[in-house]
Design a protein around this nucleic acid. Structure first.
Lengths: 197, 197
DNA sequence: GAAAAAAAATGAACTAGTTTAAGACTTTTA
DNA sequence: TAAAAGTCTTAAACTAGTTCATTTTTTTTC
């Protein structure tokens, strides 16, 4: 069976952890919704009740909150082959505190809460898929939460550059500052210092 | 069926997400190992290959790494009814970078990697249990990694105090500083300032 | 392709958090 | 129960990161 590019991408992502039969693949794909988000448009805004989780097949989005002073704090950049959404809101159906905005024209596959629950009934193997997916995300967030607390901004920048070389050239320095957790001015200083080294 | 206290505690923890039959409960308990760690002793040290994940039934432990300068960074305090371990090492069988040390005499239930895998075969419902457990941990680590980057030390202290009132009185100020990500001296200033307010 | 808007760079004055050092208080151990 | 070891406090001098203001460079829009 030949699938379109976006479907091949998501099936390969899933095949890292579980094997699906052709029938299961087709069933799974039938539960997904295709979504397009134009540059600068929102996939989600604070206050929304987010009933979808997303897989990015093309483009780049930033996931962020605004603090009391209206300053943005970016928690992730999501590009092709990444999963994103607000899991807390997805789980509890409470309004989200996050904004997700496309920094490039983006294409996604979304799964609704209803279909996500259905998925586990129809193809129980997906419990394993999500168990492993969450387990791995957890490992990287535990590390990031320690680094946020124990590394200097310069060290966090160097880490990010090493870990996500495919992202760093697609985002603005200002957004990178909002991810690293510093002002754009200080980000500018760090970058020119690191490049001079 | 009547279970001993530690078994009741772990079964109740699991019952939050999945229902087990009596037979499944007994099967599950048979896969666990009882472990005792005396105050100041280690459950795990950097370099170990950690083939167990743990549930704490009594006591308190601190999970930390040492940086290049030998400064400890605590990533969690684990008390009764918490799960702990080094998931990265448990998953990959690579040596851990963590130390886990009891700050009180502690009692744990451990599950070996082999039994963890066996568990999914024998009682597939456990995929769901771990899927939800990891999903919820993920939500709280995502929040913590953002807070580590965007809040001041004083704000992080106030958050910790609110979120873990049952822990704050059981740990030293020095360990709290290593968790918040500041020096013990600055921790001392913050506490006396916050108490004065 | 010119005008407008946004991003990046630079610098000076400021604040949050560190370092070092010393003394007081508490807990552990012999 | 005394001594030793570890924890907590305070303070002065320092460094990482912020704020605010201005200029230059790049990107977007019509």
């Amino acid at each position: 069976m030949i699938y379109k590019e976006s479907h091949t991408l998501i099936l390969n992502n899933i095949a890292r952890f579980i094997d699906l039969t052709e029938l299961e693949k087709q069933k799974y794909l039938s539960l997904l919704t295709e979504i397009e988000v134009k540059k600068k448009e929102f996939l989600m805004q604070a206050g929304d009740i987010t009933t979808y989780e997303y897989f990015i097949t093309k483009g780049c989005l930033k996931v962020y909150t605004l603090d009391e002073d209206g300053v943005p704090h970016i928690s992730m950049f999501a590009i092709e082959d990444f999963w994103t959404g607000d899991m807390a809101s997805f789980m509890t159906k409470e309004p989200t505190r996050y904004f997700i905005k496309a920094t490039e024209h983006s294409e996604l596959l979304g799964i609704s809460k209803a279909n996500y629950e259905l998925l586990f009934q129809e193809i129980p193997k997906f419990e394993k898929f999500y168990r492993i997916l969450y387990q791995r995300s957890l490992v990287s967030y535990i590390r990031r939460s320690n680094h946020g607390i124990s590394l200097t901004a310069e060290e966090r920048y160097i880490e990010f550059k090493k870990k996500y070389p495919q992202i760093i050239n697609r985002i603005t320095q200002k957004d990178l500052a909002a991810y690293i957790g510093i002002t754009p001015e200080f980000m500018s200083k760090i970058i020119s210092k690191v490049n001079r080294m």
